[in-house]
Design a binder for these strands. Sequence first.
DNA 1: CTTGTATTGAAAACGAATTTCATTTACAAT
DNA 2: ATTGTAAATGAAATTCGTTTTCAATACAAG
Lengths: 155, 155
Amino acid sequence: MKSDSDRVDLWLESLQASGCRLTAPRRAIVTLLAETPHALGPIEVYDLARASYPRLGLVTVYRTMEKLEELGLLQRVHLPDGCHRYLPAAQGHQHLLLCTDCGLMRYVSGDDFKRLADNVSQKTGFEVTDHWLQLFGLCPDCSAVHKTRADSAAA
Amino acid sequence: MKSDSDRVDLWLESLQASGCRLTAPRRAIVTLLAETPHALGPIEVYDLARASYPRLGLVTVYRTMEKLEELGLLQRVHLPDGCHRYLPAAQGHQHLLLCTDCGLMRYVSGDDFKRLADNVSQKTGFEVTDHWLQLFGLCPDCSAVHKTRADSAAA
DNA sequence: CTTGTATTGAAAACGAATTTCATTTACAAT
DNA sequence: ATTGTAAATGAAATTCGTTTTCAATACAAG
């Protein structure tokens, strides 16, 4: 089983392996980003990471996130309300699922995409090479809360 | 058959019907946006529309595009390299197809999405309510050019 | 034509992102 | 452990896209 803190170590090792030094600011940023199930933007990372490393500068957040993206550890995500959010990268091609209530994100493996792509190719004459699929909805927890609320409202 | 200039008129009428005055700057912006097969950002619109109305101000572009979006005529699109692009809105739910070579965009109606959503729901426990699907590839023209190039390279 | 009001564009303000640069720090070599 | 050096840092300045402000303008109703 692969825990979150394993991922922190893995990311730190990757940084080191790519020639970076391990510094306190980087540790703070990596610890935050490797463990979050929410897509975060630089400013959010800045605010959150200062809890564990108060002298952190925003510039360092930008630089570290840029590096993590280069290393393929962090993935940029476009959401309806913001386009510079980042998540731990999926391994292989996965689709994104966002809870519109609590912001929880998770990946789902995409099954039957080839058929859809072929279909579109035939219909349009486009040569389809890639795609983005993002799904929006309610995570199990938020869904349960909504159902409970609906029940009490009905009672 | 519905031509592009029909769409310009339709948009202008919609603006008027919503209480807006028809002004020269708005005509320039609408004429450009209603006819383009490319997703455009405010600055691009500003630059292009000044060809037909040089005293146009950037602020007016922002305000007019905002209004057009409110009226459901323009749709915001997220692309890999920019997140504030706008296209004439699709009628109903359609998926987007972008030519990564020339930037041409078109809509494709999405067929069998319910099955995929059900699949994801079952797998994750999420209650899926919405989705974004964007496909990337080469439009017929660019695809032909690429094939020609490949042939000459081989010869 | 006159008038009232929506609309306009220049300029200022703002926020996010980037660049600059003097200082600090990690870490390899000793 | 000490030291030298290049990497990394954060404050400040800069850039760029977007929004707000406001006096001047222009549409359209009377």
